[in-house]
């Protein structure tokens, strides 16, 4: 299944991408945010380190979720550091 990954702020800079389609080949139907993180971590040490920061925030379809949230085809999953607006 294919999902959209979005990266923001320092994570976007470190990983050099802001948005891309990601195909989870080894899974069918559903996966968790944790599974997507671990699949993306296979892209190399930079990805593994960036996606495993303790304060990383995950937003699934524009809502902040924990890593056990279920991801389905067509979803938008964003990763970013803690927000600092206002």
């Amino acid at each position: 299944m294919s999902i959209t990954i979005k990266l923001f702020s320092s994570l976007r800079e470190v990983l050099g991408e802001s948005e891309f389609e990601f195909v989870l080949t080894e899974l069918d139907g559903t996966a968790t945010v944790a599974a997507v993180k671990s699949a993306l971590s296979q892209r190399g040490a930079t990805w593994q380190e960036a996606l495993n920061q303790s304060n990383l925030v995950h937003a699934l379809n524009h809502k902040v979720v924990w890593t056990d949230a279920v991801v389905t085809a067509g979803d938008e999953l964003a990763f970013f550091p803690p927000m600092t607006g206002g």
Binding site: P82, M83, G85, G86
Partner: peptide, 14 residues
């Protein structure tokens, strides 16, 4: 509104 948007709204300052 201010206390919540600072931590919950997806903005990042540089």
């Amino acid at each position: 509104m201010m206390d919540t948007l600072k931590t919950d709204a997806p903005f990042w300052k540089r």
